[in-house]
């Protein structure tokens, strides 16, 4: 299976070598320098990503330290059982998916918007400062994010409720209203990731050929038209790569953010519990490596299937945009 990770699909130009296998081998031989250039990366992924993969077998064993991964007794799907038994699989899968969709869609929209706006700003000083400040949230430890959220939002001493009270309103019990939390979590996610994420888009905008803008100006294009017909299309490749990477991990969640914002507050779980947090609570303090590996496999398989399905759908609609 070959993957075309250049999002702008190569349409024609380069045709596949028509020759036989020996011809291909010779071509590979000619590119030995390129192979060597890729070698450190290949080695890296071999050692740190592929070599441990067979160890996933642990998910099907009753692991003990003495016999190791491949010597421990095989137990079939027993380590997956609890997922079904807990009766939460559907809720967790749904929440995880919905949050990720929200993160991907809103995250990219906001990042692109911020990148475009930053590009519009003429004052160098203002641009620099604001960009630096937007980066700050990325430096805050996620544990602190939880502390900050609590001090802003809690009922008894929270800054937000203090403000509401001062203006004569009734304080809100934010930590017991599950309905509010999808917004809060998405907001914190955006807060944390926008500065970081918009860098890629900002760099892409800066590398747009300036003659395109000049041409647009000559044609009398409005700011909107310039954005719509020059900037956005040039961001598409970046966007598609980002999407491709997000899709594979769509069943994985940002454990740190969710756990530190919500923690043990079970009154919010209907709308905030994701696979990672739920499994963490179940196996907390037990050295249940097998269970966590089983869950990881479930997430990987789901992500893999989703990527394949999306690709198949895209291919049916427009082959040019298919990923592979």
């Amino acid at each position: 299976m070959a993957i075309q990770l250049d999002a702008r699909r190569v349409r024609s130009g380069e045709s596949r070598p028509a020759g036989d296998g020996r011809d291909r081998l010779r071509r590979i031989g000619h590119s030995k320098t390129l192979i060597i250039m890729c070698l450190p990366a290949i080695l890296f992924f071999l050692v740190f990503a592929y070599a441990p993969l067979p160890g996933s077998w642990i998910a099907f064993t009753n692991f003990n330290y003495h016999d190791g991964i491949f010597g421990s007794p095989f137990v079939g799907l027993r380590n997956f059982e609890f997922l079904a038994k807990s009766g939460q699989l559907w809720k967790l899968t749904r929440n995880t998916l919905l949050y990720n969709v929200a993160f991907i869609v809103l995250g990219n929209i906001v990042q692109i918007a911020v990148a475009i706006m930053l590009n519009e700003i003429r004052s160098k000083y203002f641009k620099k400062v604001s960009q630096a400040v937007m980066f700050l949230p990325y430096f805050i430890s996620v544990v602190l994010v939880g502390v900050i959220a609590f001090n802003l939002l809690n009922y008894d001493t929270g800054a937000l409720n203090a403000l509401i009270e001062r203006t004569g309103g009734d304080p809100i019990k934010i930590y017991s209203q599950a309905g509010l939390w999808p917004f809060i979590i998405v907001l914190f996610h955006l807060w944390q990731s926008t500065g970081y994420g918009s860098i890629v888009y900002f760099a892409a905008i800066l590398s747009i050929d300036s003659t395109l803008f000049e041409a647009a100006a000559i044609d009398g294009a409005s700011a909107w038209q310039r954005t719509r017909y020059v900037i956005l299309p040039s961001l598409k490749p970046t966007f598609i790569i980002l999407l491709l990477f997000s899709l594979g991990g769509i069943m994985r969640g940002n454990f740190g953010l969710f756990w530190n914002l919500v923690g043990n507050n079970a009154t919010l779980y209907d709308t905030t519990d994701i696979i990672e947090t739920s499994v963490y609570r179940m196996i907390i303090s037990q050295n249940n490596f097998t269970t966590s590996t089983a869950v990881g496999l479930y997430q990987s398989l789901f992500g893999f299937a989703l990527v394949m399905l999306c690709n198949w759908l895209v291919r049916r609609v427009n082959e040019d945009y298919a990923l592979f």
């Binding site: 299976m1 070959a2 993957i3 075309q4 990770l5 990366a41 290949i42 992924f45 740190f48 990503a49 592929y50 441990p52 993969l53 067979p54 160890g55 996933s56 077998w57 642990i58 998910a59 692991f63 991964i69 491709l244 990477f245 594979g248 991990g249 490596f289 097998t290 966590s292 590996t293 990881g296 496999l297 990987s300 992500g303 893999f304 990527v307 592979f324």
Partner: peptide, 17 residues
Amino acid sequence: SFFIYFTTLFSAGLAPT
């Protein structure tokens, strides 16, 4: 490229790694 991308889809998880 696929060799590299594939590692984002499947990772071995904490214990095996």
